[in-house]
């Protein structure tokens, strides 16, 4: 996945694409030719989603921590 695509791609879009790939693969109608490409794409999407999730979680946790500090200070 190019850096450019990473910037444009959203979590939801990536998830939807992954779901589509997974449902295609599960339907067993996939030939081996396209399977390799699909798997390759799916792996990319998964790593993108994991990164995104991880980053978001970190951000939110940090924000919550700041908020708690502010509240404690006001006390």
């Amino acid at each position: 996945m190019s850096e450019k695509e990473k910037k444009i791609l959203t979590y939801n879009k990536a998830l939807k694409e992954l779901e589509t790939i997974v449902s295609k693969i599960e339907s067993e109608n996939v030939d081996v030719d396209s399977l390799a490409d699909m798997i390759k794409r799916a792996v990319e999407l998964i790593s993108f989603l994991k990164e995104k999730l991880f980053a978001t979680q970190n951000e939110i946790e940090k924000a919550l921590k700041d908020l708690e500090e502010i509240l404690h200070k006001e006390k």
């Binding site: 997974v22 693969i25 599960e26 081996v32 399977l35 799916a42 792996v43 998964i46």
Partner: peptide
Amino acid sequence: YEKIINSHNP
């Protein structure tokens, strides 16, 4: 999803 993908990986 990862597991599914992995299981299908040729």
